[in-house]
Simulated scan of single mutants.
Amino acid sequence: MSDPVSTPAPAAWLVRIPEIFEGIAKEVLARFGATSHTRLGLDFYSIKTTTPKLIQQSEAAKFARWNLPLDHSWPCNPQKMDGFIEKAAQTLLKKFGDRSPQGIFVGLLNPTSPDPYYRGLASNLRGRLLTLFPKLTAGTVEAQNPGSETLFCVVGKEGLFCGMQSPRASNGFYPGGSKYIDQDSPDTISRAGAKIAEALHYLLMYRPAMPERSHWLELGACPGGMTSELLSRGQFVTAIDKAPLDKRLNNRPGLKFAHVDVAEYEPAPKAYYDAMLSDLNGPPEESIDHIIRLSGPLKPGGLVVFTLKVPRIETVDEPCALFRRIVQTATEAGLRLFAQTHLTYNRHEFTLFLEKRR
């Protein structure tokens, strides 16, 4: 007699599906093989699945901003519990002390909540954990090695949920995957500046930061939110748009502005670019064609940051099919996709990271 085939035990996992995808969240979880799920906070889900690799490897993975194996769950209301921080810290030390995490970071199940209690709780819990785990090598978020394991925790009125995984596998350096950018400055031109700032932070999981004085070609730059952010980082920008840029960008060092439709723009002779950026509106097929047409002066290994605008997201399959078409078009033109995500400041869109083949 042959041995019976054993069924893998369900694994507990935490996934974050942005609220904008709430209408398809159940379908996404089904694609992950979730046999059960519990909603936590605004857009986190605790699930059980016998196929956890689908969370990171299936087409539906693009709808999950962040994921984490749930090595420890403590459903409780911390605000009503005496000594929560010390009890939690000692439990985590016993559970993870011998696993040598590179760093410990604590986030919120409701990261945009105005209630300061849980923000303070997360900070105080991390502070206590740092005294118990004295040999951490990553003291700040961006000091993490993208491929080494970090102890990530998220806390809220639903309890404490923790696990260890590398930032790259989790799809983000922060617990929950979001880097929130202050947009209250009077110098803020548009939310697009926060979008490229977060994109460049995310990019650190895959390649070094762009050196200062790198030359960017930006398609569809108006009103200039992304342009302003790049210039503030010491980058050079050739910005293209048929609409004018915000007047606050007048005479900014490092900026060249071509006041012309992208379809009519022609690079100068002997031009070269270290990177290209497209946040163009309109059909994504046209946007990627513009990138391809203008990618000749892009240096080998050069970066392309491309916002894939999805007309509507009502099912999992339609945006996935569009994604495949765009990536295939780019690949055939010599642009290799190496990462993609849904940023905090994306709406019905995804940010794709490509590089020109060497």
Rank of each mutant, 00 (worst) to 15 (best):
M1H: 14
S2V: 15
S6T: 12
A11Y: 01
V15M: 03
F21M: 04
G23L: 12
I24D: 06
K26P: 08
E27L: 13
R31Y: 11
A34S: 08
T35Q: 15
H37E: 06
R39S: 09
R39F: 00
G41Y: 01
T49W: 01
T50Q: 09
K53S: 06
Q57N: 12
A64E: 08
A64Q: 07
N67P: 03
L70A: 00
S73A: 13
W74V: 01
C76F: 04
Q79T: 08
Q79I: 12
K80A: 14
M81L: 14
F84K: 10
E86T: 13
T91W: 02
L93Y: 04
L93N: 03
K94V: 07
F96M: 04
D98Y: 05
G103F: 03
F105N: 00
T112P: 01
S113G: 12
Y117I: 06
Y117D: 08
G120A: 07
S123F: 09
N124K: 12
N124M: 12
L129W: 01
L130R: 15
T131H: 15
P134E: 00
V141Q: 06
C153F: 00
V154Y: 05
G156R: 08
C162S: 09
G163C: 01
Y174H: 13
S178D: 14
Y180G: 05
D182K: 13
S185D: 06
P186L: 06
P186V: 00
D187M: 02
A192F: 05
G193N: 09
A197R: 12
L204F: 04
Y206H: 15
H215T: 14
W216Y: 14
E218G: 00
G234E: 07
G234C: 00
F236N: 12
F236H: 14
T238A: 09
A239S: 10
L245C: 03
F257T: 00
D261H: 10
A263D: 10
A263T: 10
E264P: 07
Y265E: 02
K270Y: 13
A275G: 13
M276K: 01
S278Y: 04
D279E: 13
P283Q: 11
P283V: 07
S287Q: 06
L294W: 06
G296L: 10
P300F: 07
V310A: 05
V310C: 02
P311Y: 12
E314N: 11
D317G: 09
P319W: 09
R336L: 14
L337S: 05
Q340T: 03
T344F: 14
N346Y: 00
F350S: 09
E355H: 14
E355P: 03
R358G: 14
